[in-house]
Computed example of a mutant assay.
Amino acid sequence: MTNQQSNSANPNLNLAFRRKQNAEEMKHQVITFAMMIFFTVIAFVMVAMDSISSWFTIPVILLLAAIQVIFQLYYFMHMKHKGHETIALFIYTGLTVGLITILVFLTIVWL
Rank of each mutant, 00 (worst) to 15 (best):
F39H: 06
K80C: 00
L89A: 06
E85S: 02
F44N: 05
I31F: 14
M1R: 00
N22A: 14
V109L: 13
T32W: 03
Q72G: 04
L15F: 02
F39Q: 03
E24A: 14
I70N: 05
H78V: 05
T2Y: 02
A34V: 09
I61M: 08
Q21T: 06
S51I: 11
V47L: 10
A23C: 08
R18K: 12
I42F: 14
Q5D: 11
P11Q: 10
K27S: 15
I108H: 02
L63T: 11
I70T: 07
V109T: 08
Q68N: 15
V41P: 00
L13M: 14
V97A: 13
S53N: 12
L13T: 12
W55H: 12
A43F: 07
H81S: 03
S8V: 06
V97S: 03
T57E: 10
M1S: 01
F39G: 00
F39K: 04
L95M: 06
I102K: 05
F44T: 03
T86D: 06
I91C: 09
V97N: 00
F17H: 15
Q21D: 04
V41Q: 08
V41F: 13
P11E: 09
Q68M: 15
S54T: 11
H84T: 01
I61C: 07
L73D: 04
E24P: 00
S6A: 11
H84M: 04
K80A: 04
G94L: 08
V69W: 03
N10W: 09
Q4K: 07
I42E: 12
T107G: 14
T2M: 09
W110C: 07
L89Q: 04
T101A: 15
D50M: 08
V30S: 13
L63M: 13
N3T: 01
W55Q: 09
F76I: 02
N10M: 10
Q72M: 09
E25G: 01
T107H: 06
N14P: 01
Q5V: 12
I37M: 13
H78A: 08
A23R: 10
L64F: 06
S53H: 08
V45N: 05
I100S: 11
T107I: 07
N7G: 13
K80M: 02
L15T: 05
E24S: 11
Q4W: 05
A88P: 00
A48M: 12
A66D: 09
V47R: 02
L106W: 06
K80G: 00
F90N: 03
I91S: 04
V41D: 07
E85N: 04
Q72D: 01
V109W: 12
W55V: 11
R18T: 10
I61L: 08
Y75S: 05
M46G: 01
G98Q: 00
Q4N: 10
N7L: 15
F105C: 12
T101H: 05
Y92T: 11
A66R: 07
S54W: 13
I100R: 03
F71D: 08
T40Y: 14
S53T: 09
F71P: 00
L95E: 02
S53E: 11
T101F: 14
A66K: 09
Q5M: 09
S6V: 06
H84E: 01
